[in-house]
Design a protein around this nucleic acid. Sequence first.
DNA 1: TAGATTGTTAATCGATTAACAATC
DNA 2: TAGATTGTTAATCGATTAACAATC
Lengths: 209, 209
Amino acid sequence: MKKVVSESVINRLPRYYRYLTEINRSGIERISSKDLSEKMHVTASQIRQDLNCFGGFGQQGYGYNVESLRAEIGKILGLNRGYTAILVGAGNMGRAFASNTNFESRGFKLIGIFDIDKKKIGMDVRGLKVQDYKDIKAFIEREKPSMAILAVSRNSMHEVAENLISYGVKAFLNFSYTELDAAEGVSVENVHLGDSLMRLSYKISEKEE
Amino acid sequence: MKKVVSESVINRLPRYYRYLTEINRSGIERISSKDLSEKMHVTASQIRQDLNCFGGFGQQGYGYNVESLRAEIGKILGLNRGYTAILVGAGNMGRAFASNTNFESRGFKLIGIFDIDKKKIGMDVRGLKVQDYKDIKAFIEREKPSMAILAVSRNSMHEVAENLISYGVKAFLNFSYTELDAAEGVSVENVHLGDSLMRLSYKISEKEE
DNA sequence: TAGATTGTTAATCGATTAACAATC
DNA sequence: TAGATTGTTAATCGATTAACAATC
């Protein structure tokens, strides 16, 4: 029953979601795969193939209803499940992430922020008080967050991750330089801003040749 | 002469660079494609194929010298060219990027930070004073930065990008929700933290089925 | 109805993996 | 030298694109 959907398709879903969000916001009600393909610089064929991994969301002769397609993709991505998150590390990166990703508008809820730095504990970040990292175990066991966002130093990342896993956290978004390997039953997304910078650097130097 | 290297290969280069940096730091001098493949969870074949797009950096029977392979990949990525960058937008995201990406250790130089917010102008970020956005034209024409990092609001992104292009900026790292389309002769990398969050959400919900 | 556009199958293309001779 | 491991060619696999019948 459960069809396996390729990694490449999954990786494109958030981008579809973003574009549909913007198109919806601009008031457009329906869109064909051809029009969407032009906006997104991909082929219409690819869009139709991708969507049909999950079901037929369009209508022949009409195209797709923007709002409902957006909702469908949101559902596929799990955005309607009310996932909760805790943020570990209230430094620049942690705060930027907390205020930048439109957490709530995507159905996520940030329920706790932790740090070991006495200067940061008690600070207000997006309406949440930064808590002492030593209280994180009790918090996790009580609140059972769906995921933890790791915005801690390179050195402490592995230790923090191990601790959180032992407290029951099953999913991580990791911003550290070092990648976190997904252990059995644990989901991981590693994010590397530096990679984008290096790719841009490559593009620039390529043009200079 | 100039061989075309596929997008997939390019996209993997920063990851190789990161791993080699860590391996080098840990004091390991040489590594075989097999050992590296196990650390990175890719095939040894892929590593050898990827590297051979750019030349033979290894030695039969020996493997690769970690430090020199790292340097070679750095060169391919253009990290040795002393590229300079300006940051537009000194909010959370801008500051996080400035302090998180190890700019200098990768050979980049951040030479200016700009904002329109009077409260931010004059602030110190990583040893640079935040300057008034209205002075950016003169600055760009004088300093000719290799790239601009856009950490501005969704609404102002397009206007800012157009302005900077007209002042001569040829490469952008864009953190706004909306993607910037690469115009003729302009290099663009769009970064979307929210996408990683959605991918993680997908992974979590996939496991719940 | 006629026109448009999907869902889906088939064809193509490219990327990954396997294999091995070359060689350090 | 013998063993190890690369560079590279060939085989496989998967992803993308093209095409078109189904149908709104």
